[in-house]
Amino acid sequence: MSTPKLHAPSHRHRKGMLPALLAGGLAASYLLPYFGVLSPYVQLILISVGVNIILTSSLNLVNGYMGEFSVGHAGFMAVGAYGAAVLSVNVLPYGAAAPWLFPLAIVAGGLAAALLGCVVALLSFKTRGDYLAIVTLAFLMIVKSTLENLDVVGGARGFLGIEKLTTLPWVVAWSVATIWVIRNLVHSRYGRDIQAVRDDEIAANQTGVDTRRAKVLAFSVSSFFAGVAGGLLAHHLQFINPRMFDIAKSTDMLVMVYLGGIGSLGGSILGATIYTLLLEALRPLGAFRMMLMPLMLVLLMLFRPRGIMGMREFSWLLPACDRDAREAAASDVDKDGKA
């Protein structure tokens, strides 16, 4: 006769563990490179894993939790990358004197992307499904063509002279912040509105869900973090050009989202990590590498159409109240099973 109350201490135990783990990870990401334990190559890979986690989980908010098919995520990323880069090179040429201004530039880039995300959300009021996919695609192409024609930021030649400000601790901090914000959003009232749009928009509207607000919220939060990822990437590569943010980039992100599974942040973390590490690990295969990746994706879709995690979640990624509810339900099932 185990009652749910008996589990309570273990919850509290785990509740303190996650922040401790994150703090430890952040400290490690700062200290390990400082003492030269992580080689620059490993750091490089970890940075791209982190950037991809940010991109994947933010795209999952629109494509997974809201159930739309956005292919324009690379466009938001481009806006963030250019916004942050222009700010850090032309407007605030702070250099080494004030590196604390770096997050400011990143946030500004993210806000610029979020603003455009709102515009796309306004367009999504009238169009849905395949047509909304076209709207996001058109948006991506417009962003890319505009950047190619803007001589102020180098046009098609690209934007040079960005300082190297992205470090591993920054990337870890931003990835954790992204996961934390999106997790809390999707488990809040607003997040349930967003998921109601996916499950049945008409029914949601009838029951008083403000679907327009949900769309604006999902698109702006999602594009904010895409912009953040772009800003981090720009200050990591120190060079950006419009061609880096084309459909292929969006396709990469879609692959990571659906590999990990829609509607699951744990899936996004797994999908981004596995995809990035696998692409790196298969490098010795040369030309075969790029054939193997899509082949594995197709096989995955054939045998597991919902991706690795599809609509499920690790319990350590759930807020405490949802975790309790899940374990209570599980123990109820246990009791029923025994009875």
């Binding site: 098919f69 659906y258 790029m290 054939m291 990746m293 994706l297 879709m301 054939l302 159409p305 919902r306």
Partner: peptide, 24 residues
């Protein structure tokens, strides 16, 4: 009979495969 989006992703994957097969 799978969710429609898995078919779309499969199609994207097939396209990328064809590109890189020809590239090879």
């Amino acid at each position: 009979d799978a969710p429609r989006v898995s078919a779309v992703i499969t199609a994207l994957g097939c396209g990328i495969f064809l590109e890189h097969f020809v590239l090879w």
